[in-house]
C-alpha cells in the first residue's frame, strides 16, 4: 500500500539553514547537508529545501548544497525558491534535485508550468500555493512573493488550472496557519485535495503529532510537510511515524 509521506522542510539562506535547528547532537546544525542527513537517518520520506537567498552568489552556494546533499542522501529531494526559468529547473536537477517547487513564476506566467512539465516531466513539477482565507467571503486567495502579494486568484480554481497544465503535485501552505502551531487549515487542505486528482502536500501550522494525523485524514493530504515541530525537536520523525502507524495511517516504517 502507498504510504503517506512525512517531509521535513529546511529554509536555506546563503547556504545555511535559517530558523536554527535545535539538534544538540549535530556538529553544525546550520549546515543543510548535515541536517538533511540527520532527517534521512531518522526516517523522513523526502526532504525539501527552500532557498530564501536573494543574492546571485547565494544562489550558487545553494546549488552546491543541493549537490552535496544528493551525493549522500538517497531519497527524494525537492527544491524551491527562485525557480523562474527552464534553466533554473535544469540547474536544480543537474545538482541532484528530483523536483522543483514553483510558486510566483507560475502565477506570473502559467505557461511556464505547461512548458516545464512537457520538458522535464510532470514528476518533477510541484506547484506551491500560498493560500489565505478571503475576508468576508468564502474561499481562499493565492498569494505570491513569499506571501506578500495577493494574486487575485481563487485557490481552488488555480489548483485545478495548474493540474491541467501539468503540475505533478501541489504543495499547499495555509498562510493563516503558518507559524501558529495550531494545526493545518483542514478545510482548505480537504477542499484542494478533493478538487484535484494529483497528490496534495499539506503545509503550515503543525504543532503536534495529532495535527499531522488530522492533515492526512480529515484534510485528506497525501503528504505532510513540517518544519519547526521537527527542527526544534518537539518531536522526532520516528515519534511521528510511530504515532501515525498506531492510529492506522499507512506509513513506511523506519
Amino acid at each position: 500500500m502507498l504510504a503517506r509521506r512525512i517531509i521535513p522542510c529546511l529554509d536555506v539562506k546563503d547556504g545555511r539553514v535559517v530558523k536554527g535547528i535545535g539538534f544538540v547532537d549535530l556538529k553544525d546544525a546550520g549546515n543543510p547537508v548535515e541536517a538533511a542527513r540527520f532527517y534521512n537517518d531518522e526516517g523522513a520520506d523526502a526532504i525539501c529545501f527552500l532557498d530564501i537567498t536573494a543574492s546571485h552568489e547565494g544562489r550558487g552556494t545553494f546549488f552546491k548544497v543541493v549537490e552535496e546533499t544528493s551525493a549522500e542522501i538517497f531519497m527524494p529531494l525537492t527544491v524551491g525558491g527562485g525557480i523562474r526559468s527552464p534553466d533554473d529547473i535544469r540547474k536544480s536537477l543537474l545538482a541532484g534535485a528530483d523536483k522543483v517547487s514553483i510558486n510566483t513564476s507560475a502565477v506570473e506566467n502559467p505557461d511556464f508550468i505547461r512548458d516545464a512539465a512537457r520538458r522535464f516531466g510532470i514528476q518533477c513539477i510541484v506547484v506551491a500555493i500560498d493560500a489565505k482565507r478571503k475576508q468576508g467571503e468564502k474561499g481562499w486567495e493565492v498569494y505570491t512573493h513569499g506571501g506578500r502579494k495577493p494574486a487575485g486568484l481563487d485557490v481552488l480554481s488555480w489548483a485545478k488550472q495548474m493540474e491541467s497544465f501539468g503540475a505533478g503535485e501541489i504543495l499547499l501552505t495555509s498562510m493563516d496557519r503558518d507559524g501558529t502551531c495550531e494545526g493545518y487549515d483542514l478545510e482548505l487542505t480537504r477542499s484542494v485535495a478533493d478538487a484535484v486528482k494529483i497528490p496534495v502536500i499539506a503545509s503550515g501550522g503543525v504543532g503536534t503529532l495529532e495535527h499531522l494525523y488530522e492533515g492526512l485524514t480529515v484534510g485528506k493530504a497525501d503528504a505532510v510537510l513540517a518544519a519547526s515541530i521537527f527542527h526544534y525537536r518537539r518531536h522526532t520523525i520516528k515519534e511521528a511515524k510511530e504515532y501515525l502507524i498506531k492510529k492506522g495511517v499507512p506509513i513506511r516504517p523506519i
Partner: peptide, 9 residues
C-alpha cells in the same frame, strides 16, 4: 491520485 508518488511495497 495520479501520479502514483511515494513509497510503496
Amino acid at each position: 491520485k495520479v501520479p502514483h508518488i511515494g513509497w510503496n511495497q
